[in-house]
Design a protein around this nucleic acid. Structure first.
Lengths: 216, 216
DNA sequence: CGCAGTTACGTAACAGCGTTACTTCAACGA
DNA sequence: TCGTTGAAGTAACGCTGTTACGTAACTGCG
């Protein structure tokens, strides 16, 4: 193949093609050679622009966290802070289901050829969690949650949510309760665990369900 | 290398070597060639005994679930069923930390060369969960948990536990709350979420902590 | 005891992987 | 117009899982 014109946007093109490959064929389908073929370049392009597959995947992960943050940020505060927390849970799960392969790479559930995230990469979840922390703080101020550190409470909710999404994407939640049932039961249990009254969670859950956003 | 005597126990030898390789060098270190070299055989042995790396890993996963089940079964029922539930949580986490690489393979957090579990393999978690289901049922009978399906409650606890262990093993729980803090906070939140009184969970947690078993 | 038949295993190869010297050639400034 | 710079291609290295083929060892039968 003859040399192509130098394309300064090749980095972006590579990232988009990599995202498509990952989404359509999974982690095993994302290889340097297939990626290069997809954009009509050679495998060297990955190295000139990213220095290797590791960094390219890292860039995808950053984009994944940014998208998750954007999606969480669309959840607006309402007078019912507990419903806000639940709505954030819906948003988190919906984003994961919209980008399942990317989610599994973001949280190490899919090893891309021994690729490993650097320590710093994992901390992108911190600012992503901020909307949840805020909602938890408001629920605490409203007296629905027990007094406590909103960050710790939010982190534990995130942990539980991740468990559900992770097992759902892995296909472990099929018998006898599917992921939908587990998810809503878990949302209520999380709110009660944080201090809310069991009966009150039903109303907030109904409100949160009505706020579910369409696929992005 | 000259042909060795036919070893009918080579399958077992391979499994043990594979477990050691996985534990010591991680998923990336477990390759057919290194495995073959470790037992002084050729890569063909993997295929005659297992039909490929997939089935060998599957056998390791089965063993992993069996070991998890054994460990969960060591938790005895006491008059404080909530403490029993918590003790099962400790056992679950301890087993995962004792065999981190295996845990990540069991739950798909480490892709071994595109290896994927079959649907049936994932259902080994069902009987593994039985001790937890029993303990939840007893806590319900004792009036500490809200009336409800013990299986669903137990499954949600498992989901949250898996989230914690999964993120802990992935190195995501470092700032500002480490995994130990999150774990005990989550245990209490799970019990409260299931219906227990917040104050009562402190006593049960103290009991469960005293029952922690040494490494196996 | 001796001779098939079956099976376990090693050798060697294939395709594909990430990665990297080395080369070529387009783009830009003087 | 020419020299410099840097992006991209070619081709190779060592690694991976997998498999066709040959061989040697064990097993059952006469």
């Amino acid at each position: 193949m003859s040399p192509r014109r130098i394309d300064p946007q090749l980095a972006t093109t590579l990232l988009e093609a990599a995202a498509r490959l990952l989404a359509e064929e999974g982690a095993a389908g994302l290889t340097t050679r297939r990626l290069a073929a997809a954009v009509g370049a050679s495998t060297t392009a990955v190295y000139t622009h990213f220095g290797g597959m590791d960094n390219l995947v890292r860039a995808m992960v950053h984009e994944g966290f940014a998208r998750l943050h954007r999606r969480m940020s669309t959840v607006r505060a309402t007078p019912d802070a507990v419903a806000d927390v639940m709505a954030l849970g819906y948003a988190y799960r919906a984003n994961s289901l919209d980008h399942p392969q990317l989610y599994q790479v973001m949280f190490g559930s899919a090893a891309l050829g021994g690729f490993a995230l650097a320590d710093g990469d994992r901390q992108h979840g911190k600012y992503t969690l901020q909307p949840l922390v805020d909602a938890v703080a408001r629920a605490t101020e409203q007296g629905r949650f027990r007094a406590g550190d909103p960050l710790l409470v939010a982190q534990n909710m995130w942990i539980a949510l991740h468990g559900l999404v992770s097992l759902e994407l892995g296909g472990y939640l099929i018998d006898p309760y599917d992921a939908d049932v587990c998810f809503e039961a878990q949302l209520r249990a999380l709110m009660v665990g944080a201090g809310d009254e069991y009966e009150a969670t039903a109303t907030s859950l109904a409100r949160a369900r009505r706020r579910r956003s369409p696929r992005t």
